[in-house]
Amino acid sequence: MVLALSIAALALTAGLAVACFVRAFGITFLALPRTAAVEQAHEPQWTMRVSMMVLAAACVMLGVVPVAVLQPLTGVIHDFMGARPDLTFSIKTIVTATDFGAVSPLWVAWILGPLMIATWIGLKISGANSGRRFYETWGCGRAVQTARFEYTATAFANPFKRVFAFLYRPVEHTQVEAHPESGFFVKTITYRSDSRTIIEDSVYAPIGAAVRRISMRTRAFQSGNVHGYLLYMLVALIVVLVWAKL
């Protein structure tokens, strides 16, 4: 039961992680630039990109050849727990004890790559139309597309905020200022949405507040007066000496 629920929690984390990275990458790097500064962004020199490419390659390797991490990790687990996980793995496959699960991510990657290339070649030789035309994004009738039509990170996360409303307690304020003549001509809409997080409010915030309170108290000692510090040193010395004698 506990095992089942922890599997569910792990799976939910995986799902949320995927959504998180779609949001982080998609909103940040895709579609139209949202600010003038971003519009003028350009690629840095290759020396700056190489380090990121190394990290990206490491991520891909983590998925395709997890043995690279599993090998040292089992060693560490052995040192701490005195037992090795019931896993057998080689560069190609990972198998758990009693064959409960067996996967070969390397094989999947090996097959996926050629199949994608085969799809591309297949389309070429089967006489599929390989023409492409660049045109504006379909806008359901509006004339120009600006970055204001795009989904923002807040909008992207909104379904999650609503689904997990018991965790975030969202509060929304919408103010519509309409034309005095008719309510159908809206001048401005102000939308504000606040959300709280239970963990942040009940764990991090009290700890932070406590640290701040203690810091305020100890501040009284830090007078900045040299004589004061000399006195502290003398007191500390006496305390240590008395301690050693006892």
């Binding site: 579609a31 139209l32 006489g127 139309n129 023409g131 492409r132 660049f134 045109y135 504006e136 597309q145």
Partner: peptide, 9 residues
């Protein structure tokens, strides 16, 4: 057999 139209963005 149709040409693909792709958004400029």
């Amino acid at each position: 057999i149709k040409e693909a139209v792709i958004s400029e963005n």
